[in-house]
Simulated scan of single mutants.
Amino acid sequence: MIASLPGFIRLPLAMLLLALNTVLHVLALFSLTFLKLLSPMRTIRLACSRALVAVAESWIGVNNILFGVFTRIRWQVEGLDGLRRNGNYLVLCNHQSWVDIPVLQKVFNRRIPFLRFFLKSQLIWVPLLGPAWWALDFPFMKRYSKETLLRHPELQGKDREATRRACEKFRHMPVSVMNFVEGTRFTPAKHDAQSSPYRHLLRPKAGGLAFVLDAMGDALHAILDVTVVYPQGRPTMMDLIAGRVRDIRVHVRELPIDAALMGSYDEDTAFRGRVKLWVNTLWSEKDARAGRMLMAADAAPTGD
């Protein structure tokens, strides 16, 4: 019923409720974080960490309810059987839009350990959400341009050290580490600039994947290969909130972690070649799968 309200009523109401949900949950996160920082007892800090995750999962759960009430999205999700709440996963996904994040949160919330993303360091300044991500142990990465590294060679490898420190923290808790392997969202301009050999994807970057596996590979149980497509085209967050996204398709495939993917990406040239080959093969399969998913959507009956 609410999804059929006129847009000038539905959109402000949806944004108000989403904002209210965020503020209330972030306040709860801040209270628990304050208690965690002040407590000298490890047991209390661990309890606070678990409570922080529960609050974050509650926030996602309420968001999912709101999107369900205010939108008419047709979901088709495959491959969720056998996933474990107490497993440790490396989640690899193509990246088309900021909508990918709420999509992944909806698909995996309370099915696998709470998803943590590698974030650009600037995002810590996002009002409310930046400090909340910090409280939830999201790793913030500072990337340096080639020009900066030439001027300051002492910064070489700092981002890799930050990856290892973040992953070391994850060794002692159930975790799902999220990696958008393309490193940026897909656009036709980026696709052309890269001369990408894939029809629906950008070129993958193997380095980040290799560093995560090197830092905590033996603590991970599996890789989750996730493909997300939007048959109507890449949406914006406003498209999602406004109910203009009508069809989302997600395919999940669990893969074993091959021992051949463990090694030193910087120092071992042969290992670097193996990882790049593995990622490129995975991306070729993903590109073909995305094409099949879009074709199936085109052939499916339309209508609400």
Rank of each mutant, 00 (worst) to 15 (best):
R164Y: 14
R164V: 11
C167S: 10
C167N: 11
K169S: 10
F170R: 01
R171K: 15
H172P: 06
M173W: 12
V175M: 14
S176L: 08
F180A: 04
F180V: 06
T184I: 10
R185D: 12
F186M: 01
T187A: 08
H191R: 10
S196Q: 01
Y198W: 09
P204Y: 10
G207Y: 07
G208D: 02
A210D: 00
F211T: 04
F211V: 09
V212A: 11
V212N: 02
L213H: 05
L213K: 01
D214E: 15
A215F: 12
G217Y: 06
D218V: 06
A219M: 07
H221Q: 14
V226Y: 06
V226L: 02
T227F: 10
V228H: 11
V229N: 01
V229S: 00
V229G: 00
P231E: 12
G233T: 02
G233K: 05
G233C: 06
R234Q: 13
D239A: 11
L240R: 02
G243F: 05
R244Y: 07
V245Y: 10
R246Q: 14
D247K: 06
I248V: 15
R249P: 05
V250K: 07
V252G: 02
R253P: 09
E254G: 11
E254R: 15
I257H: 12
A259V: 01
A260H: 04
G263E: 13
S264W: 08
Y265T: 04
Y265F: 15
Y265S: 05
Y265I: 07
Y265E: 08
Y265W: 12
D266R: 13
D268F: 09
D268W: 07
G273H: 13
R274Y: 01
V275H: 01
K276N: 09
W278Q: 09
T281S: 11
L282I: 01
W283H: 05
S284Y: 01
E285P: 10
E285G: 13
K286Q: 02
D287T: 12
A288E: 15
R289P: 02
